[in-house]
Design a protein around this nucleic acid. Structure first.
Lengths: 243, 243
DNA sequence: GAGTGGTCTAGACCACGGT
DNA sequence: CCGTGGTCTAGACCACTCC
């Protein structure tokens, strides 16, 4: 039944850490010992441990062992875990209690040809045709974010405004076009533009957070460029690095 | 001479991708073929490929191959690559042309006892003694960021204001106290506080970017909590995810 | 010196994509 | 079907930390 051994081990150890079977600042049992406990090779155990480390739960030190890190209390509010994933993902998040309070307005939907300026922004090629979609994201009717997206038409075929109003990712799946492989994003804080002030409920804030995202298909093609501009005080983005 | 085979392979392939020996949207040679080329096992090749993937250069698809992703043009300005690493790291960045234009002012240096409120913020334990350090980061004399840091005293021993004025990380290294293992950070956009307006050159902006960072020692102890508050339009943070 | 994680080899079988 | 990457085994040797 266990399809992937290492992810079973990962789950088990993660639970045990949360239940304090292994306590912060102590080390886990050695890799050899875990290997015999789960009846797998050391390599498989190592793989699970690596995943725990990239989650920020443990940290391995040569010659000492795998140390359980002290936990961090975090009582963030709206939009905690989400992030570079966009609203589509947010709404499908099972743990998300806010789904019903979220909605989307498609403000703009049009075809544009990529010129030099747009090439600089999107990294698409000059001459490409792209869909430009501007979507307003509402929470309890408040306009908290706006997505400015460009999609390469050559990869999407003929898409309609109605498709965009539902979910573009759903459209891609339903038509079996391709799979999403990866995304690269950068986060900044910027002055609010006139358009921001027009469409977003920024209150008396005069700047916005900006999340710029490039998305790849599984054939290596850059297919989407989205800049999400959002009202301060409502979003957060988490990260973990080990050295 | 090659200490780590996989990182040699990683370097080689990375160069070849940049030189367009392997072009965007094409696949790399198969893992087996690369293994025989570099005269290593497939596992070792896979390790190098995994690293390339986490850099966002390639993406592996089962049954098809390892695809080279189309590159992204990016002409960001000040403080490009840096980020959750803090100013210490920024200044030691070899490629950084701005070093000489950067400086730090220690505004506050004091010992505090952790109470309940501070425990909520820092995840330190009530009753701990911590150093509170407020450092202003200047670029060409302009105050672009302020760091509010708490360090657990029990891990640092007797540190002076002078140590903080140089570099706390240097202090830790020189005294052989411990190694930095990992850090967890969250990024948000927040309203500017009175203090922000006092010390930062925000101009007419009324909000700031906030980067909250928890840092661990290699024995698993949470030892630093820093919130960097920075002026809009000068910073960016990059990220890459694959699915 | 004993025990830990880090690197690497040489095999094997499977799931998936394209033909 | 064949070739691809994904998972896993069963060993080996090394570098490091701690006692």
């Amino acid at each position: 039944m266990p399809k992937k051994l290492y992810s079973d081990i990962y789950d088990t150890l993660k639970q045990e850490i949360n239940k304090q079977v292994y306590q912060p600042r102590n080390t886990l049992p050695g890799e050899e010992e875990l290997a015999s406990r789960f009846d797998v090779t050391r390599n498989t155990v190592r793989r699970a441990l690596k995943e725990l480390q990239s989650d920020g739960l443990v940290y391995a030190v040569k010659g000492r062992g795998v140390v359980v890190l002290e936990p961090i209390r975090d009582d963030r509010v709206v939009f905690q875990a989400e992030n570079t994933e966009g609203f589509e993902a947010l709404r499908n998040f099972p743990q998300n209690k806010f789904i019903q309070r979220l909605s989307t307005d498609v403000l703009t939907f049009e075809e544009v040809e990529v010129d030099e300026e747009l090439e600089k922004l999107t990294s698409f090629n000059t001459g490409d045709v792209a869909y430009f979609v501007e979507r307003l994201r509402l929470f309890d009717g408040k306009a908290l974010a706006v997505d400015n997206s460009y999609f390469r038409k050559s990869l999407l075929g003929d898409m309609t405004r109605e498709d965009a109003e539902k979910s573009i990712y759903e459209y891609i799946r339903d038509n079996g076009l391709f799979k999403i492989a990866a995304e690269r994003s950068t986060t900044t804080v910027e002055s609010a533009t006139k358009r921001d002030l027009q469409v977003l409920d920024v209150g008396d804030m005069n700047c916005v957070g900006a999340l710029t995202k490039f998305v790849y298909t599984d054939t290596g093609r850059l297919f989407e460029h989205t800049q999400t501009r959002y009202v301060p005080n409502h979003f957060s983005m988490v990260d973990f690095k080990s050295f």
